[in-house]
């Protein structure tokens, strides 16, 4: 007689067998006293585990939790992903505004910084090291279009994070 492994008997007890497997095992148990004995012993362990007392919370537990809650800020009503999308859209908006109206200011700033660097000789030293070209890299970087691109990059990162939160929320 082919007796099932112990694991099948455990699966039977924990309700993890499919209906057909369950029926097959029950048919086997009707004819096999050895497996019936194993089942009885396993059942005994189950019964002992189920008979363990539930340890109740001590007196004043709820009161203590409520007093600690009072000291903590209330939970935020908006989920993370909504915050992230909001921040992403705001940064994008700032980017558009900067690219449209901020160009004169950024150009002026670039010129000031550039003249400071030329004056202090920093650019030459950096160029000597091969770190930058002779072109005026700083003013390129700080023109309106680049501010726009920079803002889009930041917004993109925040939006990606927001989308990741959405995916996480959907996957539970």
């Amino acid at each position: 007689m082919n007796c099932p492994p112990l694991q099948s008997i455990e699966d039977y007890l924990i309700g993890a067998l499919a209906q057909s497997e369950r029926r097959t095992l029950e048919e086997h148990l009707e004819t096999c006293s050895s497996c019936r004995q194993t089942l009885a012993h396993e059942q005994e362990l189950d019964d002992l585990l189920r008979a363990l007392p539930n340890l109740g919370a001590p007196e004043g537990f709820s009161k203590s939790v409520l007093s600690k809650m009072a000291a903590k800020p209330a939970s935020r009503s908006l989920p993370d992903w909504l915050w992230a999308l909001g921040v992403g859209l705001f940064v994008t908006f700032l980017g558009i505004m900067a690219s449209r109206f901020g160009a004169p200011f950024t150009k002026e700033l670039a010129q000031e910084v550039s003249s400071f660097i030329h004056g202090s000789g920093v650019q030459n030293r950096l160029s000597d090291l091969g770190a930058i070209s002779q072109s005026d890299w700083l003013s390129q970087l700080t023109t309106g279009n680049n501010v726009f691109i920079l803002n889009f990059a930041v917004a993109g990162i925040v939006l990606c994070w927001g989308l990741w939160q959405v995916v996480k929320a959907l996957r539970g």
């Binding site: 939790v65 600690k68 809650m69």
Partner: peptide
């Protein structure tokens, strides 16, 4: 156990 309830309170908006 108290800490668990406090965390649940703070994270309740995430319970969907």
């Amino acid at each position: 156990a108290q800490e668990a309830f406090i965390r649940a309170w703070k994270a309740l908006s995430h319970f969907e």
